[in-house]
Design a protein around this nucleic acid. Sequence first.
RNA 1: GGAUCGGUAGCUCAAUGGUAGAGUAGCGGCCUUUUAAGCCGUGGGUUCCGGGUUCGAGUCCCGGCCGAUCCA
Length: 567
Amino acid sequence: MSDVNEYRLAREQKRDALAALGVNPYEVRTPERTQISALRLRFESAEAAQSPETKAEAKVEGVAIAGRVLANRRMGKAVFLDLYDETGKLQVYLNAKQTGELAMKVADNLDLGDFIWAKGTLQRTRAGEVTLFTSELRFLTKALSVPPLPREFTDEQGNKKSVDALTDPELRHRKRYLDLMVHGEVRTRFALRSRIVTAIRDFLTGQGYMEVETPMMHPIPGGARARPFVTHHNALGMNLYMRIAPELYLKRLLVGGFEKVFEINRNFRNEGIDLTHNPEFTMMELYEAYGDYHSMMTITEGMIRHAARAVRAFERSVDVAAIQDSELVFSWKGQQLDLGKPFRRVGYAQLLHENAGVDINDRAAVTAKAKALGIEVHADYWKLADEVLEATSMHKLQQPTFLIDYPTPICPLTKAKPDDPNVAERFELFMCGIEFANAFSELNEPVEQLRRFTEQVELGKQTEDVEAPKEVDHDYVEALEAGMPPAGGLGLGIDRLVMMLTNTESIREVVLFPHMRREHTDQKTASLQRARIAADTLLEELNSPELRKQPGIAEVAKQVENARKSL
RNA sequence: GGAUCGGUAGCUCAAUGGUAGAGUAGCGGCCUUUUAAGCCGUGGGUUCCGGGUUCGAGUCCCGGCCGAUCCA
């Protein structure tokens, strides 16, 4: 794709022609203007004030708008433009008599995608279209590339058909600005995302929660099972990890004496990209002192319902208060999800028994079932049992369901039930087989926490689990020693919630700029990239605590390091 | 990581191994109430990249890049 093409050249010539007319093609200041939706309302009330006989004479004088030109219909010495701003579209009419000769010369140099400002009188045309009859025109911004607009064509049978533009998902995501420009429904979806986040924020602050910001770069990654992104701080001379979860910092705030805190921000996980995973994604986490996983279920339902209400209210242009719980049925992935009703609750062991036909404590049976399912058997029994549950049951959790009471060994940050140390007070929320939220009664015993962290690190080493933590966060344990009140904590994936509430199947459609590989990679660059990654991986291994002390390793590491630098 | 599918004009798409085309957008002309305006004329291509087979490759083969879907 060349930067210089006939389209660009034509536009550059028009840009220069504007300059020659004394018109700045990149105007600095925009005169006062009103948004299009507001003007339409004003015109409607002006019309309503007229009698049926004089209705056609309704007009609103002295109004100004600004926006992007996305259609240009030239009728001899008159011009009809479709002008768009964030709130809508309005037709703009120009002619020499009313708008002036200079304006017509400006119109000669107008392209689709340009921004203009126009002032005049609102009136209906003969065809009935509300139109700004322009008395004053200002040029604001020249666009040098063509907006990829949807168009209409006539097929062999003479039928008119419409053709969407910019349908290639790759282009739509790489150049989201064009996607937003030409697809109103995409703009609406992201506006809804903003509404949803605002609704959650309002809901929580309304319940006395305080929004906080905790570090995005952690010296020890923790709070979840995931591979982190590694980065380096030069001045401190240390590696830092992009956070995989804010959990351990938020709980330090409970130690400090805050009772209800939440954070809505990005987490980073170094894993694959698919329909429900982007390497950076938005998470809402909250912690409530003196709460537990029961209070977390209550708040989860309330919060999701509140966000759903905000979406319905937006769709119907009504006040949130007007939305009934019975209207909160959302269709997603071919299911009708009733968010107005209480969510179902089902026990972990019960679900495993129902769908896999095995008792969670019967290791032989669970292992046999895993083999039968083709799951690779490994030393971590509880992870294996979890994989069996995953394979047999998760896809059956279609309607909103709290899966509750997990085995304690897979819940290193969760308090066990008072009457059963093997069962942890944890739940995950599923809809359409997809995990939305994760919550528990927070473990606050420092000695027990240290024991579980240590066990987790050891087990991770044994099973060579790349997602397991490599190091115990002693600083967090020390924080618990200062005393953390009993508490409930909750994490809710915002991207997935937005997907569900906007009936979208891919996370890429609810993230403005989803991650992709770089464009235009040639063979040499690709090889270099692979070599760098291979060298980095090798270095990581050579520098691991297990290998570092082996004789000769340090020298090899140094050689690899030098080779890496030359790549 | 594996399998399958895809990448052709700004955009949406055609093209048995045989001159790369259409609609739309662009450019020129006509038209002072049109409306995804209309009419007449006209320019526009690294067919993702690199090799190979062939008299001849957008098409077949090999490798690579990017994306989509499914699986792990």
